[in-house]
Amino acid sequence: MKIDCTIDGKALSLSINSNKPLSLILEEDIQNSSLNSHCNGQMCGFCTVLMNGKAVLSCLIPAFEIRGKSIITFEGYAKTKNAKDIEKAYDLTHLKPCPSCYNSRTLIIESLLSNNLTAKEDIIREMEMLKCHCLEFNDMVRIVQAASEIRRKRHARRA
């Protein structure tokens, strides 16, 4: 099946099986190294990507659903200004996720910030999904709230 989509800003036309999971497409067809795991949909959370700006688990997205959509992996996201906000929040709070969950956690934070979900319960519910215990929930709340503040200031300066 031929599928047209945009991955990390590049318009691609892929010839792939229509039911192939996005996580495998990124690993095998795009050779994207930013995904850490392929858990077969057991919801470990390590394969998070942004699809049309929303965080999704790439192992739960079949190829036919990415047709015409824009996918952003951590590789593409790391170059954006939004990523710098979150990096600054890590530095400011002196809290940093471990290398295995860094990419996914950053993308989940981005999804929280873009949807204005900065309440403690929302952050904890979202982060609970990630099966990595390198950071405590209170630390995550601090990071997200710091990142939200940094982004708000950046937007205010720009305005």
Partner: peptide, 16 residues
């Protein structure tokens, strides 16, 4: 029938 796909895709024999 394919709804959200969370069940079908989480089966160990889903792909390949």
């Amino acid at each position: 029938y394919w709804a959200g796909g969370t069940y079908i895709m989480s089966r160990s024999d889903y792909y390949p």
